[in-house]
Design a protein around this nucleic acid. Sequence first.
DNA 1: CGTTTGCTTGACAGCATTCAACGTTGGTGG
DNA 2: CCACCAACGTTGAATGCTGTCAAGCAAACG
Lengths: 250, 250
Amino acid sequence: MSTQQRVPPARPTAAAQFKVACSHCALKDLCLPVGLSRHELAQLDGLVATRLTVPRGAALYRCAEPFTSLYAVRTGFFKTRTCTADGREHVTGFQMAGELLGLDGVGSGLHTCDAVALEASQVCTIAYLRFQEISRDVPELQRQFHKVLGREIVRDHAVMMLLSSMRAEEKVAAFLLNLSHRLQARGFSSTALLLRMTREEMGTYLGLKLETISRCLSRFNEQGILKVCHRDVRILEPAALEALVNSATI
Amino acid sequence: MSTQQRVPPARPTAAAQFKVACSHCALKDLCLPVGLSRHELAQLDGLVATRLTVPRGAALYRCAEPFTSLYAVRTGFFKTRTCTADGREHVTGFQMAGELLGLDGVGSGLHTCDAVALEASQVCTIAYLRFQEISRDVPELQRQFHKVLGREIVRDHAVMMLLSSMRAEEKVAAFLLNLSHRLQARGFSSTALLLRMTREEMGTYLGLKLETISRCLSRFNEQGILKVCHRDVRILEPAALEALVNSATI
DNA sequence: CGTTTGCTTGACAGCATTCAACGTTGGTGG
DNA sequence: CCACCAACGTTGAATGCTGTCAAGCAAACG
């Protein structure tokens, strides 16, 4: 059964009571510390002190707020969305455990999108100024941060390609496979997905209307490629999804 | 009259004979040095030594090549394109004087796209390793580089929004206005554009087919918004273009 | 001067959107 | 406890935008 988002917006709350140092974090092979030595990790430990709890529906940060920190998702699931004058939103990405939030603020010093928790989540806070200072003494950390920024750019290019050259079914297939791979990298099942986002959020991310998303999922369900029950999606034929994506890429 | 691209691919050639230091470069307020002090600029001068000349149609770098340097466009015009197995290409961006090329390689150490000159161009070469070393001693340079990477991410988000939520006319209008603003920032006319790319290149960038681009330009021409003569485009009614873009954004 | 490449335009088809109706779920308040 | 409401999701029919296919033209190059 899918949980809906009726929770009124609330601000994240500090929850620094129990710390988990980066050096002991289960996510250290996915998150910012990738490839750092023990000594370098120790430096990071001192920085990543506070943990924030973000209730479902709450914004970790909002567009136009000053950029002060990066955030590493520890548990939960986020969307980033750009804010338009009226109510319409465009989702620029979905973030899960081990992924960084806040990179959108590095360029201008102001956040350029909202980061909203799609389920109750926890994030580690990385004060940007102190991070910069430490990076000066830990070249590998600096290098690592550049890699994170660079990978984000490459990821965006891939999304641009998806948006501009794929048809609806191909987009949805690519989206599901992407989720699947990211879950697998975190030790979860690659075939049992629990979608945390609405059809509309998927739609604005993929450049489609919510009805189109719904129709694609229904069609995959009929074809036996997926078993769709609301937000509970089981991938029965991963190869069929891959074939769809490849037919678009090649 | 527009110049076509019949030039056979060639490799860029070194042309370090005459150096223009960053501190004396006319582009220093648009390029990497933005906001650096005189002393900080002097550090950069030592790094940006070699200049490359890239003939029209030649690749500055190619997908899967090792990433060793960043490049600042000094004169000319580039496209970056992702390479697919078959011949089809997807353009991820167009770069003009003062803009950086090569950021796509920071993440993995390998370039993830081709950078191709659309006219005879010159670029300044910034050796990445040495740049990293100098940045360690010049925090402001480090900060500046982060800003460049961050702005690229924000720019990509804007393109994603364009690709996913605009219709053909709105996309073309947004594209022309973007070119116009960037030219204006460089002291050129904001109304007289000489398109360096083909309709097809515009199309893959905007997620449209070349015929659709052509039709949009023709329609704008009929409506008196543009005066289109092949690649020579004059913007007669900038307000009309802005209205189109805003109607999509708001 | 012929060929190649790029551009324009027309007719038609197809896919996604739009509009609408209906069903379901979960929370709220009587 | 139950009815109602709001948000979410599904499905159908019709519209329309963009893509596809094709033909013809112009410009540039060898």
